[in-house]
Amino acid sequence: MKIRSPRYHRETPQRYRLEAAKTESGKVYFPPRVYYPGGEKAQPYKMSDRGRVITYTVIHTPAAEYSDLAPFAVGIIELEGGGRITAQIVDVDPSEVKTGMRVKVEFRRMRTEGDEGLLCYGYKVVPE
């Protein structure tokens, strides 16, 4: 599937800088939303780049865009101060990934797409 640049660049603040939103009650929404449940007000919130692995898997049969990377680890990461992301866990042998492992978010190249060879970036996590 080809990503056209408007669709890609809309997500830049989130993928490049982990920009989220925090509501008055302290709940973190990533990405920020147009409307928050209960009509709560929210302020821009930059999520921490430190967190820990809640759960993970090692993908052996990826979608076409990631076929060059397999096998690779992907997990749900809970970030310090709130917010959860799904991210690839890299710079570590997938067999050494563990639940509870502390990780740091890094800015990485994800893939190239489309006829124009659009370079796509985003976040991955590495062991801290």
Partner: peptide, 28 residues
């Protein structure tokens, strides 16, 4: 291609983009 098509039933921008597949979601 089918793995990709199925992955659109998850959050395309915040799950699929990061490489997770449907078997991967249930594996987690």
């Amino acid at each position: 291609e089918a793995t990709f098509a199925l992955s659109t039933a998850a959050d395309t921008e915040y799950e699929g983009y990061n490489g997770i597949t449907f078997p991967g979601l249930y594996a987690m």
